[in-house]
Computed example of a mutant assay.
Amino acid sequence: MTAATLTIDLDAIAANWRALDAKTACETAAVVKADGYGCGVGRVARRLAHEGARRFFVAVAEEGAALRQELGPGPEINVFSGHMPGDTDMIGDLALTPMINSLDQMLRHLEALPGAPFGIQLDSGMNRLGMEPAEWGALRDLAVQQNLTMVMSHLACADEPDHAMNAQQVRTFRQMTDGLSVPRSLAATGGILLGPDYHFELTRPGVGLYGGRPFAEAQPVAHVQVPVIQIRDVEPDETVGYGNTWVARAPARIATIAAGYADGIIRGMGAQAYVWVGDTPCKVVGRISMDLIGVDVTGVTPDPEAVELLGHHNGVDTLADAAGTIGYEILTSLGARYRRRYHST
């Protein structure tokens, strides 16, 4: 078998959810958008439901429809994008809960599905989604008379604990919501770690469930093992890969492994990235191509049959740092070519 193997550790996802839940005194939901951050929404959500999660968040109604098929009736499925044109049948038939972002969405929802549940998303300063204070002030009394399930907002700088924006947003959110008798939610993973002032009645961790920053205690979730196709001896002054970007300065043993940017291994990380053979780091050499990567395995004995690209040595954020990006992009870029396996005890 030549394809690399991607193993998703469902036990680790469950442990990460429990650890984040233990940091609060409120309900803990789960964000499973983007196919469970690339990990497979069905397997991920079913495991989290087994652990006790009763509310889930997705980005768009189509994701909510797929999730409802996986979870069946019961768990609440919240849609961040709200009630968009064309979503009414999915929302109504599949009991999805849109997070209403504007007056237009509010009217669409109340006219099309009177009595159906909805949440409200407020803009507390991020200027991305949600009602601004003036719009919310005009609609607040109407909203609370309907089937309102929660009011939420989103932090812009929660991964920077000392950033002044965090305190500014929690003040704004309180000003917009104090006195309401419905659950409030402000904190994703980073907000949970900021402490109780940000927790309110519901938290909704995302990337921390999947082993990413800023949850430093997270267990790694995604593990990628890549087969070695060939190993060759390279002499001084010989080059490896497209563009002759890597030149051997001494005799070297170079392994060609079966993965590339078609598998979500970002091309730009090559100059900084390592893979691992056991406890030995091995430098990526030359340009990452569509299907193949060169790796310096000089001194590794015996010749490796596979290397670890993601796992306990290389977390998603380690690869992200090498690529100049964030762990979210690494996770959600993992391609369709992997042989996928799930670990669960």
Rank of each mutant, 00 (worst) to 15 (best):
M150R: 07
G311F: 08
A306I: 04
D178P: 02
V151P: 00
G191R: 00
A271S: 08
D35W: 00
W17A: 05
M269P: 00
N147W: 04
S185A: 15
P183W: 02
I120M: 09
L193G: 00
G119I: 03
A218W: 11
M150D: 12
L148R: 02
V297N: 10
A222C: 14
I8E: 03
D159L: 05
T88Y: 00
D263G: 02
G268L: 07
M106N: 04
L139E: 10
E235H: 14
R232L: 01
L186G: 13
D296V: 09
D141R: 05
A95M: 06
V275L: 14
T7D: 15
A255R: 05
H109F: 13
L180K: 01
D93T: 12
S124M: 11
A25Y: 03
A65Y: 13
T88E: 04
G119W: 01
L180D: 03
F173H: 06
Y328K: 09
A134N: 05
A12N: 11
A3N: 09
T189C: 09
W17K: 05
V207K: 07
M165D: 13
Q121C: 11
V32E: 02
Y328G: 03
H163G: 06
N244I: 08
G311S: 05
L6C: 13
S81W: 14
K283Q: 15
T7M: 08
R18T: 13
L10N: 01
R108H: 04
I231W: 02
D93N: 14
N127S: 08
G212N: 10
V275S: 13
L48M: 06
K33V: 04
V240F: 12
A156F: 00
H223S: 06
A187T: 06
G294N: 10
T177N: 13
P117Q: 01
I330L: 06
A138S: 15
A134I: 00
V316L: 14
N101L: 05
L319Y: 12
P183H: 05
R47G: 07
H199V: 12
L193I: 00
Q219K: 10
T298C: 05
Q168R: 14
P133V: 02
E308Q: 15
I229C: 03
F57M: 12
R184H: 00
V297R: 11
L96V: 03
D87W: 01
A188S: 11
A116S: 12
M90V: 01
V307R: 06
I265L: 14
A188T: 02
I293H: 04
G72P: 04
L96G: 07
A61L: 01
H199K: 08
E76S: 12
D296H: 11
Y338A: 12
V297C: 07
P183Q: 09
T332P: 10
M150L: 09
Y242Q: 15
L129E: 03
R140G: 04
L48P: 11
P214N: 11
A30D: 02
P73I: 02
A252N: 05
S289H: 00
L48A: 10
Q105Y: 02
G260F: 06
A95K: 02
V277Y: 09
A336M: 10
L129N: 03
R213W: 14
T301Q: 09
